[in-house]
Design a protein around this nucleic acid. Structure first.
Length: 159
DNA sequence: GCCAACGTTGGC
DNA sequence: GCCAACGTTGGC
């Protein structure tokens, strides 16, 4: 059975949840992933419709800021071919691309669920993103973890 | 800005 | 294939 739930990190200065919400189709290609584990999740495991917890990292208030979902299959990350991009990879070729991305569609902004709140939930103590030293920008979330978060921690923001 | 933790690179 | 050096992530 396919993995159904993910947590995806983004630095809000580069791609904030609000900026995705404001796009006409509320969709962004998840470009710039240059970690093999995260790439393999997108390439091999993710499927259209998978639910996503959108997480802001490297910012004053890190945490989950929105609900989203995967809305495309994995496809080549165009930034790897662009010499002007900071994500340019000279070792990657069009015929054999090294890096892929999926499209992510923003669904619902929520009140920030910060790290302290996540860590305070015994049910969530096993979450990958909470483990010491974790730096993976895409991590699997179990159905139990996802259900707990949506049921107990998510406060939807009406707009 | 600091620093712990982890991933990648490259010499051997 | 090993592993030291280096680079990056990301919370604080």
């Amino acid at each position: 059975m396919a993995q159904r739930f993910w947590l995806m990190k983004s630095e809000p200065t580069e791609c904030s949840f609000e900026s995705v919400m404001q796009m006409p189709d509320r969709t962004v290609p998840w470009f710039g992933i240059r970690n093999y584990q995260a790439r393999n999740f997108m390439r091999d495991v993710m499927a259209i419709g998978d639910q996503v917890l959108f997480y802001h990292s490297s910012c004053p208030m890190p945490g989950i800021v929105g609900l989203a979902h995967v809305c495309s299959e994995a496809k080549p990350d165009e930034t790897q071919f662009d010499p002007k991009s900071i994500y340019f990879d000279p070792k990657s070729t069009r015929s054999n691309p090294r890096w892929v991305c999926v499209d992510v569609m923003a669904d619902q902004a929520i009140d920030l669920i910060d790290l302290a709140t996540l860590r305070a939930q015994p049910v969530l103590s096993g979450m990958r993103v909470l483990q010491k030293g974790n730096r993976l920008s895409i991590t699997p979330v179990t159905p139990e973890e996802f259900a707990y978060i949506v049921t107990n921690l998510v406060k939807r923001i009406e707009r």
